[in-house]
Simulated assay, not measured.
Amino acid sequence: MSKYLLDKFLFTVDRDPDLVERYREDPAGTVEWWEREMANKLLNCIDAERSTWLAFTDEERRALREHDHVTLFRMGAHPFLTLTLFIAMFERDHGPLEYQQAYGRAMAEAGIALPYPDIAT
């Protein structure tokens, strides 16, 4: 399991409105494409410079495909990255602050309370 790779996915998708929509509409396809094309691309480098070893675990892929922010949090994904991305994807389907409150309730119902997992970056 790689907190780095989870956070990299959440960060890069959240920063591109087209990827946000793609992830909202086709999460499995987006996760598969991103892992194949982007996971091993080094930040701030030319395309020819890539790593070869980074990949999601089956559990990470499932959580990303299912938009399961509780499981992502338990795996160590940074909560601000999941929250901002999921707000971009789902807030439009809810009233003011309704999605954020549902996000918090899901965390509380899952028994997530302080101390939080390590969210150091």
Score class of each variant (00 low, 15 high):
Lys3Leu: 03
Val70Gln: 07
Phe9Trp: 11
Ile87Arg: 14
Glu49Ser: 09
Thr30His: 09
Glu49Phe: 07
Tyr4Phe: 01
Leu5Arg: 03
Thr12Leu: 06
Thr82Cys: 03
Met89Arg: 03
Glu91Phe: 10
Leu64Trp: 04
Pro117Leu: 08
Met75His: 05
Tyr103Ile: 03
Asp26Tyr: 04
Pro115Arg: 09
Asp26Glu: 15
Met89His: 13
His78Met: 03
Asp68Glu: 14
Glu35Asp: 04
Asn44Lys: 10
Arg22Asp: 10
Thr71Gln: 06
Arg65Thr: 14
Ala106Gly: 12
Phe90His: 11
Leu72Asp: 02
Leu10Trp: 03
Arg62Cys: 10
Pro17Leu: 10
Arg50Asp: 08
Arg50Pro: 03
Leu85Gly: 03
Asp118Cys: 14
Phe9Met: 02
Phe86Asn: 08
Val31Pro: 00
His94Ile: 07
Glu32Ser: 04
Glu49Leu: 14
Pro79Ile: 09
Arg65Asp: 14
Leu54Cys: 06
Gly29Asp: 10
Gly29Trp: 09
Met107Gln: 11
Arg24Asn: 06
Leu81Asp: 05
Ala48Trp: 08
Ala88Leu: 13
Gln100Tyr: 10
Glu25Gly: 09
Tyr4Lys: 02
Arg15Thr: 08
Leu85Asn: 12
Leu19Arg: 11
Leu81Asn: 09
Pro79Gly: 07
Arg15Gln: 13
Arg50Phe: 01
Gly111Phe: 00
Gln101Val: 15
Phe73Glu: 02
Trp33His: 01
Arg74Ser: 06
Glu25Ala: 10
Glu37Met: 00
Glu35His: 04
Thr30Arg: 09
Arg62Gly: 05
Ile112Asp: 10
Pro79Asp: 10
Lys3Val: 00
Lys41Pro: 07
Arg65Met: 07
Pro115Met: 08
Thr30Trp: 04
Leu6Phe: 03
Thr57Ser: 02
Leu64His: 04
Asp47Val: 15
Val31Phe: 01
Ala102Asp: 15
Ala110His: 08
Asn40Phe: 07
Leu42His: 13
Val13Lys: 04
Val13Leu: 02
Glu21Trp: 04
Arg65His: 04
Ala63Met: 12
Pro96Cys: 02
Phe80Met: 14
Asp68Lys: 08
Leu97Lys: 12
Thr82Val: 07
Arg65Ile: 05
Thr12Gly: 00
Ile46Tyr: 13
Ala55Leu: 05
Arg22Glu: 14
